[in-house]
Amino acid sequence: MCKTQRQTDPRTERTPHMHPLADQILIQRYHSGDREALERLLQRWNTEVLSLAYRLTANREDALDIRQQTFLKVYNALPAFRAESRFSTWLYRIVVNTCRDHLRSSETRDRAHDDALTPGAAVERTAPSQHDLCEQREAYRLVAHSIMALPAVEREIIVLRHYQQMPFTEIAVVVGSPVTTVKSRMMRALKRLRHDLATLTQDADDRAAGPGAAPGYKDDPHAMR
């Protein structure tokens, strides 16, 4: 079915246990009546689904809800799932769409993200001192806030690329936009993040630059706008 010499999927290489064939085998086994196959399928994707939902909502409780909704939709659709389709892409689309719905609903719109960004919401890293712990906590809050402050379309792309390590071509399918759009949104997101996170990169030039300017090269005709 592939028309070109497709390069090996870098994600497959990095995480060989997530090979698409395994999903197809599990689904087939489930169709043949192997009930354990369902649990194994959920197990394979449990962390990824939650991780994606968490970073799109910055709220662990919501992420758990979304995970459950996602798996329910998967379960309902399993009986007719075609083996030729890539399960992972389809699954990620469901997560992304479920998160979009969730973030649009009026309940969540009014809720401040601050409530959710408590230390318990994320895995604590051991720090040698209280000062470091406090700094770390601040750092992650700032990163999370900055990502949540992005427009939804940009946030999806940066989360999928950076945290889910998804290649741009796959992101394009998952979010339903051309690759060029994906990449330009990526750059816009990075510009905003560069500005918002300048205190963390400890770069005076980054901080001085606005979200759309190049650091220290305001008169440079080649500077990015």
């Binding site: 962390t47 662990r60 994320a122 895995v123 992650y140 999370a144 990502i147 993040l193």
Partner: peptide
């Protein structure tokens, strides 16, 4: 900037 993003750990 990209490196700094890793300071948000997963749940």
């Amino acid at each position: 900037t990209v490196q700094v993003l890793d300071q948000w750990p997963p749940t």
